[in-house]
Design a protein around this nucleic acid. Structure first.
Lengths: 402, 402
DNA sequence: CCATTTCGTCAGGCCACCGAACTAATGCTG
DNA sequence: CAGCATTAGTTCGGTGGCCTGACGAAATGG
């Protein structure tokens, strides 16, 4: 087995090089592997023999047509292992089972149980079993998972420090419980960070090594990539831009409690702003957006929100110098918003930063969870990288994008 | 030679482990090295024999007192190689020659020549020669250097994109010129980033893996560490918080040009603010600070500046979640300022972030340059890849290695 | 059918590493 | 003070991974 802890470092390194190459292109010949990894043909042959014996790769065709003997090509077996991606929201629980190439083979959504932390773990366990059954995946093939959750996750321990919406989740050792219940190692990460990973993996920031994903919905949050690595901050609270001192007075007690920016541009803030402008009472954010063309109060409200969001983006960009900023979340992904934000940015930045709407929508967190779970498994099997600890996560980017 | 490109990867890895251990503690015995690196005693002996033969380490004492045979300890020879640190400012040019342990063996300051880029390179060359002579260091021992400069340095190429204050520097291939003139590879980095590295290496953020260094002087800038790595941004402009939309209207044309925050809290802004409050005309920032106790206008001006700075710190912290924020620069390092900023932070943050004044003052950039040059040399000699080395300058390291 | 090219294996050898046995030096104990 | 326990460092033999070079196998093209 390639994960045998006894196998010497050199071979592990070689295996990893091979697997990384195979991750980028399926169908690669041994000779090509030798050339692109710099290893000798024999070494490659040995590595491939081992990988094939253990079921990680298989012969996958031939290359013909050019002069010389035709080459047998190899490809990773996507069904060699499976991973679980979980998006735990306050209202919905979304679980997906995916193979090593990121193909989702089964998924399901349920309302999140209201019975607190332990019940949530049990619920995920039930959904896992159903998905395995549904896709006929033997449980031994499941090799790891990643769960996204709102709140703050301690980067050192990987445990949930603050979990809004789900009572009793922060007082539980969720990782241990999940390990117990699911039989696999499950890393936990902030949902917005995972959404950023998702966009980096399969979305609109695939080529960017430095970007930010801003989610605007009920609240506001941000996931940051710098130089291909996720920025977590000292306590895992990087990107918590709810507290940016924009759109209000940061010394106001309400801003202190809820966050100045969130108060201004969160869904509650938008509706309040609309009402204050004489809007129709009982409206939702969706209503406000729907009335943009007909209702002056709606227009002004969204305009003001856009203006504040533009300054927030300016602030974020001046700190991070992102190559691109992805807007996501139920509100943030709206095209009407991007339009206006773009316009305001043009007026406060000499070289406005590129803004894109999320390509993955409300699946971003789930896809990010799947992507980082795959990365996690690859690392635990073949990798030796930065951090070494679970969920160092950088290579999602590196492996797939490069 | 340890830098012989032919030596196999495994041995390089071992050498690197040993050197890294020796960098942390001087005077380590072979047995201790074997234990802490996990390598066998024989391997350690071989590595040490090679390192000693090539002049990188030497015997440095004995450990006695405990049971058993006494151990010979080894230490890195600080004089095995030397590096050059350069702090290129608009008015002053500060150059230091240091050994591998960071001991500065010679340094000098001159006014920066006003004759443009090529002249600056020549001036650095002259200063280098004088320093080598002064410290009796043979030129072959000089193995690398790092130069700090204001402006924006492209993280990919390592060349200067925008260089305020020094005409013709951005149109020159400074790295090539310096390589030519000095005979060594010189990496270029933003001066504030180097100051952050300096504080990380020898200053007040030694233990922090995520922190920000904010320099307030004529202008305002920031250097960011996240998880032990410098954050550069897509174009090298991360930390350019001059443009933070605080302390003024970001849609104002002046803020657009000069940066809203910089306009508000830069030295010009402070003096203007003081004058507008009825302060004595012709005053400098220093005067304003000196009159804090006697002059109401001075007190109010500094108070307002502190308040704006506090919101800037709040903004930065909500994006980055730094463990600590270091205040530097001629204005930023003033204790009167920290006092007031701390007070305002207490009023707008529930858990105020820890603020420290710079420990290195106006030498931070120089020391950071020396530190990263040492890191660079160690990497080019012993290192491979990101994830190693005490200072972690991925891009710089990559450049030199490539 | 043969020359050429490329693929992949085989054989031999090198290098780095390790474990075990060994020598050397030191402190402790009776 | 002799012997024992402990630690340091070396020698030796063996293993694993990798490489080079040679060779057979399979394809193309004249």
């Amino acid at each position: 087995m390639p994960d045998a802890p006894t196998s010497p470092i050199a071979r592990q390194q070689s295996v990893r090089l091979v697997v990384e190459r195979l991750l980028r292109d399926r169908a690669v010949s041994r000779a090509e592997l030798a050339r692109s990894t710099g290893l000798s043909k024999q070494t490659i042959s040995e590595v491939m023999r081992d990988l094939e014996r253990d079921g990680w790769v298989r012969e996958d065709g031939q290359i013909q047509g050019s002069v010389g003997r035709s080459a047998v090509t190899y490809a990773l077996r996507p069904d060699a292992a499976f991973v679980l991606g979980v998006d735990l929201g306050g209202t919905k629980l979304h679980v997906a089972l995916a193979d090593l190439q990121g193909e989702i083979v089964a998924e399901s959504i349920e309302p999140t149980t209201g019975d607190g932390g332990a019940a949530v773990v049990a619920q995920i366990g039930r959904m896992q079993e159903a998905l395995l059954l549904q896709a006929s995946v033997p449980v031994q093939r499941l090799r790891g998972g990643v769960m996204g959750s709102p709140g703050i996750i301690d980067p050192a321990s990987g445990s949930i420090v603050i979990a809004p919406n789900i009572p009793g989740l922060d007082s539980l050792d969720v990782r241990a419980e999940l390990r117990e219940r699911l039989g696999i190692e499950v890393a936990i990460e902030n949902d917005v960070n995972l959404a950023a990973i998702g966009e980096h993996w399969r979305g609109n920031s695939r080529k960017a090594r430095s970007f930010a994903f801003i989610a605007v919905g009920t609240g506001i949050g941000m996931g940051i990539f710098s130089d291909g690595y996720l920025v977590r901050g000292a306590r895992g609270a990087a990107g918590e831009i709810a507290y940016l001192p924009l759109g209000g007075d940061p010394y106001d007690t309400r801003g202190l409690r809820l966050g100045t920016l969130e108060t201004a541009v969160g869904s509650v803030g938008i509706v309040e702003r609309y009402l204050a402008l004489g809007g129709i009472s009982g409206s939702t954010v969706r209503d406000v957006f729907d009335r943009l063309d007909s209702d002056e109060a709606a227009r002004i409200a969204i305009d003001e929100v856009s203006r504040i969001l533009a300054s927030a983006i300016l602030a974020v960009h001046s700190v991070l110098d992102s190559e691109i900023i992805i807007m996501g979340g139920s509100i943030g992904a709206r095209p009407e918003l991007k339009l206006r934000v773009d316009e305001y940015l043009g007026r406060c930045m000499r070289q406005p930063v590129r803004i894109e709407r999320s390509a993955l929508g409300n699946r971003a967190t789930l896809i990010g969870a799947v992507g980082s779970a795959i990365d996690l498994v690859h690392r635990s099997l073949f990798g030796i990288g930065r951090g070494a600890g679970p969920l160092a996560l950088p290579a999602v980017a590196a492996d797939v994008a490069a």
